[in-house]
């Protein structure tokens, strides 16, 4: 399959999925709609990891930018009184973009385990700061109001998860996924393969490997932050432990491996599977939850090294 055809197919897939989710809204029970929203939010963070994985890199600290996005939105809402979800999203993306731009100068010269652990270190520093800051509620965090969109406020009786918020998250995520897919198919996306395969040759093709890593790092950070904004708007509360703690970052890497890096849809599918398994496991087997995760990861690595997405490739009868 040619790249151009693959990009077109993915675009069509995203359009169909978006339309289906919006059409399903009246039929979805509240918990299911919530699961979809949270999965899209988490999936955005994993989409950022997918970009890094295409560059041959992995970050054990995406919780850092997930937290920056969530806290930026929550702070703007709580302390500046901003309720518009679009403005809150931009605030999250811009904050994470600025931090990633600065940290990028440190991480872009590192590869492999050093890149992964540097990010873990940064995320733990932020966790420490957030957990000790009394005005931000320390480890308890603080609440976020119900968001509005372009001057429209949802019905106060309708609760937090309205069609407005749901539709906003679905459409915004779809546009972002479509855009990332195009970027991955563009020269800068292919430069990522060059970084993964042979940096020396890439340099002699006139491309700065460090510059390309820096761009990918900022992009991944912005995606993670947007995921953080969506999650906080859905849950209505932000805490350090649910955003910046290292187990959260580890969860994102887990989902990235579960989904595979074959397609921009993989992170969202994997995150949905993850959320569903967690929901049911916590209900029916609360003590076995961690074990269940471990076994799942083991099975995926052994039998589906390309992640859940490679199932789709197998069904089409070509090797991933």
């Amino acid at each position: 399959m040619t790249l151009l055809r693959r990009v077109r197919l993915t675009t069509a897939g995203i359009a169909v999925a978006t339309a289906a989710l919006l059409a399903l809204w009246p039929l979805l029970p509240a918990w299911a709609a919530h699961t979809v929203g949270v999965s899209l939010g988490g999936g955005l963070v994993v989409l950022g990891l997918l970009i890094l994985i295409r560059f041959g890199l992995v970050s054990f600290g995406q919780g850092l930018f997930f937290a920056i996005g969530g806290y930026a939105a929550a702070l703007a809402n709580q302390f500046l009184g901003i309720t518009d979800m679009l403005v809150l999203s931009v605030a999250g993306i811009a904050s994470a973009g600025a931090v990633a731009w600065a940290l990028g100068y440190i991480v872009r010269g590192h590869r492999g385990i050093f890149f992964a652990m540097l990010n873990l270190a940064f995320s733990m520093i932020l966790f420490g700061i957030l957990a000790k800051t009394v005005v931000l509620g320390s480890t308890d965090g603080f609440s976020v109001g119900v968001p509005t969109l372009l001057g429209f406020a949802p019905d106060p009786e309708a609760g937090r998860l309205t069609f407005m918020l749901f539709g906003y998250i679905v459409v915004f995520t779809a546009v972002v996924a479509w855009w990332v897919d195009r970027i991955l198919a563009s020269p800068i996306g292919y430069a990522g393969q060059g970084v993964r395969e042979n940096e020396l040759r890439l340099r002699y093709l006139g491309v700065s490997a460090r510059g390309a890593v820096h761009i990918a790092y900022i992009a991944a950070a912005k995606l993670a932050a947007l995921g953080g904004v969506f999650t906080v708007l859905l849950i209505g509360h932000v805490t350090p432990e649910d955003t910046a703690y290292w187990t959260k970052s580890g969860e994102f890497v887990f989902v990235a491996i579960l989904g595979g890096s074959g397609n921009v849809a993989a992170p969202f599918i994997a995150q949905t599977v993850f959320e569903l398994v967690r929901t049911f496991a916590l209900q029916y087997a609360p003590d076995a939850w961690q074990m269940l995760l471990g076994i799942t990861l083991l099975l995926v690595i052994l039998f589906l090294p390309g992640g859940l997405w490679s199932l789709a490739d197998r069904l089409r009868g070509r090797d991933a």
């Binding site: 040619t2 790249l3 890439l202 006139g206």
Partner: peptide, 26 residues
């Protein structure tokens, strides 16, 4: 990557600032 993909990558990223970089490579 294959021989063809190597050259696609090389041709595509070379001077990547000149063509609109968001256009699909291929």
């Amino acid at each position: 990557l294959t021989v063809y993909e190597n050259l696609l990558l090389a041709v595509g990223v070379f001077g990547h600032r000149r063509p609109p970089w968001w256009q699909p490579l291929v």
